[in-house]
């Protein structure tokens, strides 16, 4: 099958040096009668960004929530850093599609909220939050409220909140789908440098082919009903050419075309 082939051809060069941070083993999940995930296995290398890409209803968000411990699988197991997942944990942090900010809380309290729930003292958590507010470029907005921010700025708050708990794995559920095109491009560039500088493992759900190819070290194509990994693609050639050159790299364009060719029959 295509899966094993792709793995062999593009993967062998890096595989030796790569350690697996998160692994999903034989995950199945049913919602009543519907099979959302069936016997799905997937590895996520440490320090890299893996995208889950597929048509709507392919269970990519379900898989992400199972890894995050927000849903439990009917069978199968997720391991993070060698530990089996039984629920949400300190080693993982979530970035939500609709930002999930507390509308009654200021930016700084929102960013510090993860630490607040972990019982970190107020002054300490606020100084950590301050640092990440600066990092995501929201300095000066500490005391603003979510409704005073644009969609892009709100997602920066969500990102800062996930970064401030210093988890090894960042789970991102279509984080840029609710922001406008230009903001999204900026986010994608920022995400590339984040992956490079932070040595964290990123798991990134998206329905945009271009976005997946642009930001990922590894792309898992999920096909629906029941959801399974049909293909794993590891773009390797254009990652070092700088963010502004990726979109005209022939390999980038080839991969986008190839993914579209395999997904187009699933579009209603």
């Amino acid at each position: 099958m295509a899966t094993s082939q792709t793995k062999k051809t593009t993967g062998s060069r890096v595989e030796a040096s790569v350690e697996i941070a998160v692994s999903a083993r034989n995950i199945s999940k049913n919602y009543g009668e519907t099979e959302a995930l069936k016997n799905l296995s997937l590895d996520f290398p440490r320090g890299q960004l893996t995208s889950l890409l597929g048509p709507s209803g392919c269970g990519k968000t379900t898989l992400l929530k199972i890894i995050g411990g927000l849903l439990s699988a009917d069978s199968g197991e997720v391991e993070v850093g060698g530990q089996a997942v039984t629920g949400p944990g300190e080693d993982r942090a979530f970035v939500f599609q609709d930002f999930a900010l507390l509308p009654w809380a200021s930016v700084i309290r929102n960013v510090a909220f993860g630490l607040e729930l972990r019982g970190v003292a107020k002054s300490e958590r606020e100084s950590i939050a301050e640092k990440y507010i600066n990092d995501v470029g929201l300095a000066g907005f500490e005391n603003s409220y979510p409704h005073e921010l644009s969609g892009g700025m709100r997602q920066r708050v969500g990102l800062a909140r996930a970064l401030s708990v210093d988890a090894q794995v960042l789970l991102m559920d279509e984080p840029f789908s609710a922001v406008d095109e230009q903001t999204r491009r900026k986010f994608q560039e920022d995400l590339l440098s984040l992956v490079q500088n932070e040595n964290k493992t990123f798991i990134f759900v998206t329905h945009s082919i271009e976005e997946a190819v642009y930001v990922s070290d590894q792309i898992a194509i999920l096909l629906p009903r029941p959801s399974r990994v049909s293909e794993i693609i590891k773009p390797s050639g254009f990652r070092d050419k700088g963010p502004e050159n990726i979109r005209r790299d022939p390999e980038y364009l080839d991969i986008v075309d190839k993914i579209w060719a395999s997904l187009r029959s699933y579009v209603e």
Binding site: L70, F96, L117
Partner: peptide, 11 residues
């Protein structure tokens, strides 16, 4: 989503 947020950040 904000309830899930609370859970995922270990509330």
């Amino acid at each position: 989503s904000i309830k899930e947020m609370g859970r995922s950040f270990l509330g």
